[in-house]
Computed example of a mutant assay.
Amino acid sequence: MTEAPLPAIRSLPSWLLGRAAARGRALVAEALAAEDMRMWHHVVLSAVRDLAPVAQADLGRSVGLDPKDLVGILNDLQSAGLVVRAPDPKDRRKNAVSLTEAGERKLVRCEKAAREANDVLLAPLPVAERERFLGLLTRISGTRGEAG
């Protein structure tokens, strides 16, 4: 049996993290697809829940989405009855986004699906190692539990 190519590259932490991230994204995307939800739609729905009522521009900045992309996602979510846009109570010239009851129910199901997918990702690790691994990832990613 021959060795896999690129051993120097495949041993780099950045390579390994990238592969693990790709597997995690694939698992979560598959779980969300079962709920008829896409990844960015889930991120936006979650941010709306956390920030609502939130101006579209503030929402886009909070999740790092281009305004054009955000509008498309919000159109999809609104068409599905998951969010509503109404004049912002702080500035009536802007739209503010909020979850509907259907959006809240969908988000609860999607969060459960995403957690279960992440449990599959981390299944090879015992609980103590999972906690340590998450702590280490948080330290090297420069985040404090931010979505990403």
Score class of each variant (00 low, 15 high):
2 T>R: 13
2 T>G: 14
5 P>T: 12
8 A>E: 13
8 A>H: 15
10 R>V: 12
18 G>A: 08
18 G>V: 09
19 R>S: 13
19 R>Y: 06
20 A>L: 03
20 A>G: 11
21 A>D: 07
21 A>P: 05
22 A>C: 05
25 R>M: 11
26 A>I: 01
26 A>N: 07
27 L>T: 02
27 L>P: 01
27 L>K: 05
28 V>N: 02
29 A>E: 14
29 A>Y: 00
33 A>H: 06
35 E>S: 09
35 E>Q: 11
35 E>D: 14
38 R>E: 10
43 V>K: 08
43 V>N: 06
47 A>F: 02
47 A>V: 01
48 V>W: 01
48 V>Q: 04
48 V>T: 08
50 D>L: 10
50 D>H: 05
53 P>E: 06
54 V>K: 02
58 D>C: 12
58 D>Q: 11
60 G>Q: 04
61 R>M: 11
61 R>N: 12
64 G>W: 01
65 L>W: 05
66 D>C: 06
67 P>N: 08
68 K>A: 15
70 L>I: 15
70 L>Q: 14
71 V>R: 15
74 L>I: 11
76 D>Q: 10
77 L>D: 05
77 L>E: 08
77 L>K: 07
78 Q>Y: 02
80 A>L: 11
82 L>Y: 07
83 V>C: 08
85 R>C: 04
85 R>L: 14
87 P>Y: 00
87 P>V: 01
88 D>Y: 03
90 K>G: 10
93 R>C: 06
93 R>Q: 13
94 K>L: 10
94 K>I: 04
95 N>Q: 13
96 A>C: 02
97 V>L: 05
98 S>I: 00
99 L>F: 04
99 L>E: 07
99 L>P: 00
101 E>Y: 00
102 A>R: 11
103 G>E: 02
105 R>G: 07
108 V>E: 13
109 R>I: 05
109 R>K: 14
111 E>S: 12
112 K>R: 12
112 K>D: 08
115 R>L: 09
117 A>S: 04
117 A>K: 00
118 N>F: 12
120 V>C: 12
121 L>C: 02
122 L>T: 01
124 P>K: 00
124 P>T: 00
124 P>Q: 02
127 V>H: 11
129 E>Y: 13
130 R>T: 08
133 F>L: 09
134 L>P: 11
141 S>H: 04
145 G>L: 06
147 A>G: 12
148 G>Q: 09
